[in-house]
Write a protein that binds this DNA or RNA. Structure first.
Lengths: 198, 198
DNA sequence: AGTTGACAACTTGAGAGAGTATTGTCAATT
DNA sequence: AATTGACAATACTCTCTCAAGTTGTCAACT
């Protein structure tokens, strides 16, 4: 393995992202990725098992980053001292980022979406579950602090976290552009948290 | 054409629904539908052009019925004099009915879902749009009557109707059973309308 | 060490053909 | 008039083949 391997891996992943989003997963060959990276196809195999692993790594990286962002927003570490509703809004938008970057932008969005479920369904699911878990924790804390009233709404923290997650997922459908999705999420979160006020 | 043709058509559609939900669209033959109906395959062609038309008719029927139910609930004609939130809840559940009956129940749910988009994407879309339009009207009226406060939430009636529709659509995902979806919808609507209170 | 060209193995997609299943249409039947 | 059995046409499902493209792996090179 070359040194420093991580930088090289990064540049390969970034090249792969460009090509995947341009041609989709199937229609992108290792040759394409190599060319975009500026190395020979053979050397890609020094850094990754195969094309599927590149895709999984890329997906994992995007999910990791967006999940980390989302959790940072949720826990309130981000600058500004925002209220809960704004933090959830920011977290949801952060979580949508990979989707909006890769899937919604590309002409091959639906193919990439399918492959993503096939090759990294586990990653996607794990990321969702982790997000819901974090959101559950945050909602519980907020309920204890009297910021929101879950009992009044007849909901538990996990159920509420699930509602927010699934509801937001629905907002991706039939969106003409990225701005529309973001606008929807903002409206959704605003109303939803107004409804949870203690 | 036989007489009364509508009863016969009904019985064929009902037989088709059984078979489609049992075997999916592709794996159901006209022979299967004929057998289930209790007539010869040939006579099916007296009532329907072909299998696709049976599917479209069935889909149209289910959508029509559920949309009519939903609109009845929304406009408040249904018995009980429910408040807006409960009416929307009932309307959303009514609208989910075809999905829950046919798609979620059947082992071939995803195949049926795909075929449905292919063969009657127009019907599905039209039904959604009609529902959103009716919901928009109802929300506007409620806003005018002071029942809900859209301006306070920074939303228009159409945008709010869209949020409700898309949010509810998201709640169908990854549901272990029908009761779960219904429970989610109830929680969602309750919180959402609490957030819209004037 | 890291990189690469070149090679063999493998996958893919198109095309052809044969056999089966399904369709759509009648003339004949009730 | 409604229904049906039976027929021809069509569509589907395998299977095989072939060519082209793609992959994964070296030994050789820098």
């Amino acid at each position: 393995m070359p040194n420093p391997p991580d930088l090289k891996r990064e540049s390969i992943l970034s090249a792969a992202q460009v090509q995947f989003s341009r041609y989709g997963f199937r229609r992108t060959s290792m040759e394409d990725i190599a060319k975009e990276t500026g190395v020979s196809r053979a050397s890609l195999y020094s850094y990754f098992e195969n094309k599927e692993e590149i895709f999984r790594c890329l997906s994992a990286k995007l999910h990791e980053r967006s999940l980390a962002d989302a959790e940072r927003y949720l826990s309130g570490d981000a600058p500004g001292g925002l209220d809960l509703s704004s933090r959830v809004e920011a977290a949801l938008l952060a979580r949508l980022a990979p989707f909006l970057e890769v899937v919604a932008q590309s002409a091959h969005g639906s193919e990439i979406y399918d492959e993503s479920n096939r090759l990294c369904g586990d990653l996607v699911l794990a990321s969702s579950e982790r997000f819901i878990a974090t959101l559950t924790t945050v909602l519980s804390a907020a309920a204890r602090a009297g910021e929101i009233d879950l009992k009044g709404a007849g909901l538990t923290a996990p159920a509420t976290a699930e509602l927010i997650h699934l509801g937001a997922a629905g907002l991706k459908q039939r969106a003409p552009d990225v701005a529309t999705v973001e606008k929807r999420v903002r409206g959704f979160v605003r109303v939803f948290f107004a409804g949870l006020e203690g």
